[in-house]
Each structure stands twice: as structure tokens, then as C-alpha cells.
Design a protein around this nucleic acid. Structure first.
Length: 219
DNA sequence: GCCCAGGTGGGTA
DNA sequence: TACCCACATGGG
């Protein structure tokens, strides 16, 4: 089976079992971008606690966050882990968003996709996954997001090696699927939902997984 | 107490 | 280029 139809079958299997995702779990493009940094290598629940702290402090805004001292920002985001590191990364992203997007990352949509991506990648602390998350979920541009769950699911179904380079896996999806942001959005959301519920690091747990019988190769 | 979670960048050979 | 490591909290 060609890759496009295969991926669409995978999409249908997950979508049929789980229903619509309504992702990213943030209210605005700005919150989405903040969340993308806070969630790096971190349980979403912890990132959400940090987001709640920012919200309650009344500083969920580019200028307001930039006005905080690095120490105050770090303290607000402590529950997200790596809080000193992430305070510096978040600040770098905020400076970029302020200078290049007038404080709203949704404005990235005014640029061609790969141009916006290259510029985001110049920000210290923004790697390919964070950049693609912002492009897709905050700016609505069709940039497919590869994360740990995507790697694990592809590799467990024999579709790609787990340690393949990021951009290769991104191309794996983008060469096979039409450049459709809502499709990429929901596909990645479903992958994370399936991955976090069924596809654990240890013990494949494919029983009851919507992808248990997907494709010819599965565990 | 141990393992894990929606990465990234810097250092060393 | 290819590893190896630091970064840190909170839940199961």
C-alpha cells in the first residue's frame, strides 16, 4: 500500500476509535507558543500547571512576560521542570515573537512556511518540534510535528526506524499527505492521544490500542 | 524509591 | 558526524 493511503487508514482507525481531539490544548496562538516551550520533554500536566501560574498572575501576554525578571518568570514556570532553562528559552521566543510578529505568533502565517520555520529555528531553545508545533497549532501552517510518540508508533509498526532524523520523519508525512493544516493538526493530536494512552516506552500495550490491527506489521 | 514525560544545545573524540 | 550529558518537576 502506498504511504498516503496507509497514513489515511491509520488516521481513520484512530479517529474512529477516539473521536475529534480539539487540539492544541490552549486557548490562543500565544498560549500555544508558550506551551510548546514549557512542554519540552515534559508531561503535559506539569506544563499546564505552569501555564495556570502564568494565567493567574495575569501575565499571559508577550509584553507582560517580557517585563518580568528572569527569576520571576522561572518561579512561575517551576512546575514545568527545567524551569531556569525554560525561562531563558521562553524569553528568547518572546523576544522573537515581539519583534517579528508584533506579539502574536499567529502572524507567522503571513510568511511562506519554510521561511517562517527557518526564522523560528534561529531562536535559542526552539528546535524542530517546538517550531513545527508553533507553525501548525499557533499559526495554522501545514507543518507536520514529529514527537516521541510519533517516532515510537512509526517504529513499532515497522514504518520507519525510531532514530531516523527529524526532517526525514517530517517528510515521511508531508510527502504522503496533502499540505492540509487541519489534517496535520488532527493526525498529530491523535498520535499523541494514542501514544500516551497505549504506546508506552516499556511494554508495547498494543492490546486495546486503536492501531492494534493496523497495517501488516504490528506488535 | 524508581521510571517516565509532546526536546534542545553544548561538549568531546 | 556521532555519541554523551545537563537540564528538573510531579505523577504512577
Amino acid at each position: 500500500m502506498k504511504r498516503g493511503p496507509l497514513l489515511m487508514r491509520m488516521f481513520e482507525a484512530m479517529s474512529g476509535a477516539l473521536g475529534p481531539s480539539g487540539w492544541w490544548p490552549a486557548k490562543t496562538p500565544f498560549e500555544t507558543a508558550v506551551g510548546a516551550v514549557l512542554a519540552q520533554n515534559t508531561n503535559w500536566g506539569n506544563a499546564a500547571k505552569a501555564m495556570g501560574n502564568i494565567e493567574r498572575a495575569g501575565v499571559m501576554d508577550c509584553a507582560a512576560l517580557l517585563a518580568l525578571t528572569p527569576e520571576a518568570l522561572a518561579e512561575l514556570i517551576r512546575p514545568a521542570g527545567y524551569f531556569r532553562l525554560k525561562a531563558a528559552r521562553l524569553r528568547a521566543l518572546l523576544e522573537f515573537v515581539d519583534a517579528a510578529c508584533g506579539g502574536d505568533p499567529a502572524a507567522l502565517a503571513a510568511w511562506p512556511l519554510e521561511t517562517a520555520r527557518e526564522r523560528l529555528l534561529t531562536v535559542r531553545g526552539v528546535g524542530p518540534e517546538t517550531a513545527d508545533s508553533i507553525l501548525l497549532y499557533a499559526a495554522g501552517l501545514p507543518s507536520f510535528v514529529i514527537d516521541a510518540y510519533t517516532r515510537r508508533i512509526l517504529s513499532r509498526h515497522g514504518l520507519a526506524p525510531a532514530d531516523a532524523p527529524y526532517d526525514e520523519l517530517r517528510d515521511f508525512f508531508m510527502d504522503a499527505l496533502p499540505p492540509d493544516a487541519p489534517l496535520y493538526n488532527e493526525m498529530h493530536a491523535l498520535i499523541v492521544r494514542v501514544g500516551s494512552a497505549y504506546c508506552k516506552t516499556k511494554s508495547p500495550a498494543c492490546r486495546e490500542c486503536p492501531l492494534e490491527t493496523f497495517g501488516d506489521i504490528h506488535l
